[in-house]
Design a protein around this nucleic acid. Structure first.
Length: 887
DNA sequence: GCGGACTGCTTACCT
DNA sequence: ACAGGTAAGCAGTCCGCG
C-alpha cells in the first residue's frame, strides 16, 4: 500500500530520453492505483462518499476549501507518514453564516429571507460589540452554502439584509478555520472521524522561559504560550514540485495571453524537492528530434501536445505543493485554457482558476512571484537585497544566478536551448524557495501559523490581509463582533493632526535638524520597536482609542485630541505586545546565542525576522484605507506617542548635558557621550515613557550636512554606513557611485581629527580625477547611465514627461517593449530632448556639463561638511592641465 | 520672448 | 495597496522685464 507515496515516484528510473507511449502506459497504471488507495472517508479526491471514518497519522493542515457538490468544507492534510495529501470532510455540520442586528422574529418576517432557497436556519447569539463596548443580541443567518450568503450577482442574503449585515464578506474557508480554531501548517490527526490537533509539548527550556516572565499579565502569558507552541513545532520537509512552461510565441518580447492560449506549449520543466528534474519537450514540425542529454535530467519528447499536457497534469496531481513563479497569472492559467483548446474535459484538468489565482485539486499551489513582490517581505525579510519584481531580478540578487538570456524568440530556439532555458527558470524558482536552508518556505510557514493564513493565501495577500486574519480569528475566539469598516470610521472618526506632507492623513515621525560638520565619537541611541511599544504600553487598539467611557476622556494622548481607555485592555495592544515580547526575549536572543548549533540559530533568526515583519507592519495597517480595521486615530496616536517620546527624551538628554546632534523618528545621535549619562537617560525613558532605548551602534565619527536623512557614519572598525546620499542611490550613474565609494573608503581610514587634513587632500584629488575623466570622455555609456524604474505604464504619465519616460518612448519608437517595473538606462545628451537610451546613444553626444553638475551634487553634502569647495577642487585640474600635477 | 522663481510630479531614500 | 518625512531633478507655469 505504500506504493503510491511520493517517495516511490521520486525514485524513478535513471534520467533518459524516452518515448511518449511508454511514459503514458506507466502513468495510467499508477493513477489507477492512486484511486484505489483513496477509498474511505478520508480521501485525496473530492468525491462524495460516506464510508466509515478511518484514522490518519500526524498530518499538516495545508488548506481548507468548500466542496460545492458535497455541500461542506474539507481540509487538505499532508500526511507526514506517507507523504500524501488526504481530504478530511467536515462532519461537525459547520455552515456559512452572517449576522444582523435585526431581531430573529423580524428577520423571519423578511419574505426574501424567509423564502430564500439557501437559508438553513436562524439563531439568536449574544456577542460583544467592542466598538460600542456593549453586549448585543444578534441574529445569525445560517445558509446552506457560501454563495447564498454572498457572491451571487443578485439575491444573496447579504444583499437583502444590507445595510444591517455583519461578517458577510469573510471567505468561507477563513470562517471555517476561525470557528473551528484549526491553524494552517500545524499538525492534526484524524481519530474516530474527527479532526484533532496534535498536542504540541513545549521544550522544558521554553516552559521555563514563560514561567520566568515577570511583569506580564496572565492574558499575555497565555498568548505567549500559544505563539510559542506554533513556533516551536518544527517545519516538516514537504514535497514540492516546481513547474515552469514555455510557449512558442512568434513575438519575442510579448508575453502570450493565457486567456487565449493560442500558441502551443513547447516545453515544461518539472523540478522537485527529491532531486528529480524532468524536461518535457514538444516535437515541432520541421524540427527533427535531437538526441539530447543533460546531466541529471530526464529529457522527454512528445509528438502530441495533448499527451505532453496530460503528463504535466499527472505530475501536478502527485505533489502536495506545486510551486511556480507567476503561475497564478501565467503558467497554470495558460495550461488550463490550452487544455480546453486541446479538448480536455474540465474534470481532467487538475487546475481551478479564479479571478487572480489558480489552484490545484489535490495539493496547494504557491506562487512565489507575489510573495517576493510583497514589500514587507522584500524589506524586512530580505533586507531589500532585490528590488525588481522579476524572476531574473530576485534570483540574480539572492542566488547569484540569473535567467538564461535569449536573443531570439522561443520558437526559434533549438531543443537544447529551449530545454536549458526552461529548466533554468524552474531551478531558479526552486532555488528561491529552498534558498538559505529553506528560509523562504520557513518564513511562509511561520507567518501562516501566527496569522492563521493558509500558505496559498499568504503568498497572495499583503501584510494587511495577514493581520486582518489574525484579528478576525481573535474576535471569533473571544465572541466579539467583527467590526465593519464604516462603523469604525464613523464612531472613531478621522485624524486630528496636520501632516507635514500635503495630502497625507496625519502627522508622522519627527526628524531633528542635523548639526552640520564632522563629529567624533557618536553613539546612536534607538528606541526598541518604538511604534509597537507605543501600541503595547499605551493600550492602543481600535476599541480603546476614543472609547465610550466618560472617565477615560482625560487620558489624553499628547499632541492629539484623542484619549485612550483606562479600563479595558486593547486587543491589538495585547497581540502586538505579546509578539514583540517573545521576539525580543526569546527568538532574537536565541538567534544570537553562539552556544547553539548554527542551523538552530538560523531557525530562531528566521522566526525573529518573521515576527518583525508582523510587528513592524502593525502600526502602518491602521493608517491604510484598505485595511479591514482601518482606524486613523490608532495610527495617529501611535505616531504622536513616538514624537512625544523622542522630544521628551531629547529634553532629558540635554538636561543631563548630552549633546544631541541628530535624530530621526526613533533614533538619537549623541556626540562624545558620558556612558553614565546614557545609562541614566535609558532609565529615565524606561520609567517615564515605559519604553526601552539602547545604544544601537557607535560611530568613530559621522559626517553631516544640513540635509536630513543624509549622513555618513564610520564605525570603529573602519566600515562605513552611507545613508540617503546620492552617491549610493541605485539610479545614480555607476561612475558616480564608484567615485563616491572611493571617497567613503578614504573616510573609513580616518581615525582622528588630525588625519582629516590628509584625507581632505586625497578627496580633492579624487574629485578632480573624475572631473578630468569626464572632460576627456574616458567613460563608457554604461558607466554614465541613469537607471530609473518606470513606475507606471507609459500611457499613465499624464501630467509630465520625465526623462526616463522620454528615453522609454524612444525605445518604444524602435519597437522595444517597455513595461511597468522596467529599469530604463539612459544618458544625458545635447539636443532638444536631452536624453537617449544607452542603446541609441554614442559617447560623443553626451552632455558633459550636466554630468559635472551631477558630480558636484553627489559630493556636495560631504565637501560642505569638510569645508572643501567643489570649484576649487576641480579648479586644480587647470593647474594639472598646465603640467602642475601633484601626483 | 526670455529667464528666474515657483509649484508639482516623479523616484528613491530613511525611520 | 502597512505609514509619514526628506532630497533631488525636472516639467511646466507664472510673472516681471522696455
Amino acid at each position: 500500500m505504500r506504493l503510491l507515496t511520493l517517495d516511490s515516484f521520486s525514485k524513478r528510473e535513471e534520467p533518459r530520453s524516452k518515448d511518449v507511449g511508454k511514459v503514458d502506459d506507466l502513468e495510467v497504471e499508477k493513477v489507477g492505483k492512486l484511486q484505489e488507495e483513496t477509498e474511505g472517508y478520508v480521501k485525496p479526491k473530492p468525491i462524495a462518499q460516506d464510508r466509515r471514518p478511518r484514522s490518519l497519522d500526524t498530518s499538516i493542515l495545508l488548506s481548507v476549501d468548500y466542496d460545492g457538490a458535497e455541500g461542506r468544507a474539507y481540509a487538505k492534510l499532508y500526511c507526514l507518514e506517507d507523504g500524501m495529501v488526504y481530504f478530511w470532510y467536515d462532519n461537525t455540520g459547520h455552515k456559512p453564516y452572517c449576522l444582523t442586528d435585526t431581531s430573529l422574529e423580524d428577520v423571519k418576517r423578511i419574505p426574501e429571507i424567509a423564502s430564500h432557497k439557501g437559508l438553513e436556519g436562524l439563531e439568536e447569539v449574544k456577542l460583544y460589540d467592542a466598538v460600542n463596548d456593549e453586549e448585543r443580541v444578534m441574529t445569525k443567518i445560517i445558509a446552506k452554502d457560501p454563495l447564498s450568503i454572498g457572491g451571487k450577482p443578485s439575491g444573496s442574503i447579504r444583499d437583502i439584509l444590507q445595510p444591517r449585515v455583519w461578517e458577510a464578506n469573510i471567505k468561507y474557508h477563513d470562517c471555517y478555520m476561525y470557528d473551528t480554531g484549526i491553524i494552517p501548517c500545524m499538525p492534526y490527526r484524524i481519530l474516530d472521524g474527527r479532526l484533532i490537533p496534535v498536542e504540541v509539548d513545549l521544550p522544558r527550556e521554553a516552559k521555563a522561559f514563560i514561567d520566568s516572565l515577570e511583569g506580564i499579565g496572565g492574558e499575555e502569558r497565555d498568548l505567549i504560550e500559544r505563539w510559542m507552541k506554533r513556533l516551536e513545532y518544527p517545519v516538516p520537509r514537504m514535497k514540492h514540485l516546481v513547474l515552469d512552461i514555455e510557449v512558442a510565441s512568434p513575438y519575442p518580447s510579448r508575453i502570450p495571453d493565457p486567456r487565449k492560449a493560442e500558441y502551443p506549449i513547447v516545453a515544461v520543466a518539472l523540478v522537485d524537492s527529491e532531486g528529480s528534474k524532468r524536461i518535457l519537450l514538444l516535437e515541432m514540425h520541421g524540427k527533427p528530434r535531437e538526441d539530447l542529454s543533460i546531466d541529471g535530467v530526464s529529457v522527454e519528447f512528445y509528438r502530441d501536445e495533448k499527451l505532453l499536457v496530460e503528463e504535466v497534469f499527472k505530475a501536478i496531481d502527485r505533489y502536495p505543493i506545486v510551486v511556480s513563479f507567476n503561475g497564478d497569472d501565467f503558467d497554470l492559467r495558460y495550461l488550463f485554457h490550452r487544455a480546453e483548446h486541446l479538448g480536455f474535459q474540465r474534470s481532467d484538468i487538475p487546475i481551478t482558476l479564479s479571478r487572480d489565482s489558480a489552484s490545484v485539486r489535490f495539493g496547494i499551489h504557491l506562487d512565489l512571484y507575489k510573495f517576493f513582490f510583497n514589500r514587507s517581505i522584500q524589506v524586512y525579510a530580505f533586507r531589500s537585497r532585490y528590488y525588481e519584481n522579476t524572476l531574473e531580478g530576485v534570483a540574480s540578487a539572492l542566488l547569484g544566478v540569473g535567467k538564461i538570456s535569449l536573443d531570439k524568440p522561443i520558437s526559434d530556439l533549438s531543443y537544447r536551448e529551449l530545454a536549458e532555458y526552461c529548466l533554468r527558470d524552474a531551478e531558479l524558482t526552486y532555488g528561491l524557495l529552498s534558498y538559505g536552508g529553506w528560509l523562504t518556505f520557513n518564513l511562509m510557514v511561520i507567518l501562516s501559523r501566527i496569522t492563521g493564513t493558509t500558505l496559498e493565501d499568504l503568498c497572495r495577500q499583503g501584510v494587511s490581509g495577514w493581520i486582518r486574519n489574525m484579528l478576525e480569528r481573535e474576535h471569533r475566539a473571544r465572541g466579539w463582533i467583527i467590526p465593519r469598516r464604516e462603523d469604525l470610521l464613523k464612531v472613531k472618526g478621522g485624524a486630528t493632526t496636520k501632516a507635514v506632507i500635503e495630502g497625507k492623513k496625519y502627522r508622522g515621525g519627527h526628524v531633528i535638524k542635523p548639526e552640520p560638520g564632522v563629529h567624533f565619537q557618536i553613539a546612536v541611541l534607538d528606541f526598541q520597536s518604538m511604534y509597537p511599544s507605543a501600541m503595547q504600553r499605551y493600550n492602543l487598539s481600535y476599541e480603546t482609542v476614543r472609547c465610550r467611557h466618560e472617565e477615560c476622556r482625560s487620558n489624553i494622548i499628547p499632541g492629539t485630541a484623542h484619549w485612550v481607555c483606562r479600563s479595558r485592555r486593547g486587543v491589538t495592544s495585547l497581540l502586538i505586545g505579546s509578539l514583540k515580547d517573545i521576539r525580543v526575549r526569546w527568538y532574537k536572543s536565541k538567534a544570537k546565542d553562539k552556544s547553539l548549533p548554527s542551523n538552530l540559530r538560523d531557525w530562531y533568526s528566521t522566526v525573529s525576522e518573521s515576527l518583525k515583519v508582523l510587528i513592524n507592519a502593525s502600526y502602518g495597517v491602521f493608517g491604510a484605507e484598505n485595511f479591514a480595521f482601518y482606524c486613523p486615530p490608532v495610527a495617529e496616536a501611535t505616531a504622536a506617542i513616538g514624537r512625544y517620546a523622542i522630544e521628551e527624551t531629547i529634553k532629558e538628554a540635554r538636561r543631563l548635558g548630552l549633546r544631541v546632534i541628530y535624530g530621526d523618528t526613533d533614533s538619537l545621535f549623541i556626540e562624545k557621550p558620558d556612558p553614565e549619562k546614557i545609562v541614566r537617560l535609558a532609565q529615565w525613558v524606561k520609567s517615564n515613557l515605559l519604553m526601552d532605548i539602547d545604544v544601537d551602534k557607535v560611530y568613530r565619527y559621522a559626517v553631516f550636512s544640513v540635509r536630513k536623512k543624509n549622513y555618513i557614519g564610520v564605525y570603529e572598525d573602519g566600515s562605513v554606513d552611507v545613508k540617503g546620499l546620492t552617491g549610493k542611490k541605485r539610479n545614480t550613474p555607476e561612475f558616480l557611485k564608484i567615485a563616491f565609494a572611493e571617497m567613503t573608503k578614504l573616510l573609513g581610514q580616518v581615525t582622528n581629527e588630525r588625519e582629516f587634513e590628509d584625507v581632505k587632500r586625497k578627496i580633492k584629488d579624487l574629485v578632480r580625477r573624475y572631473y578630468s575623466k569626464l572632460k576627456k570622455k574616458e567613460l563608457t555609456l554604461e558607466e554614465l547611465a541613469f537607471k530609473i524604474m518606470l513606475g507606471k505604464p507609459v500611457e499613465a504619465y499624464k501630467k509630465t514627461t520625465p526623462q526616463h519616460l522620454k528615453a522609454a518612448l524612444l525605445l518604444k519608437s524602435i519597437g522595444r517593449e517597455v513595461d511597468v517595473g522596467d529599469i530604463i538606462s539612459y544618458v544625458k545628451v545635447a539636443g532638444k530632448i536631452g536624453v537617449k537610451p544607452i542603446e541609441l546613444a554614442s559617447i560623443e553626444e553626451v552632455d558633459i556639463a550636466k554630468y559635472v553638475d551631477h558630480l558636484r551634487t553627489t559630493f556636495q553634502p560631504i565637501l560642505e561638511a569638510l569645508d572643501i569647495d567643489f570649484n576649487e577642487a576641480i579648479g586644480l585640474s587647470q593647474l594639472d592641465f598646465y603640467g602642475f600635477s601633484f601626483a
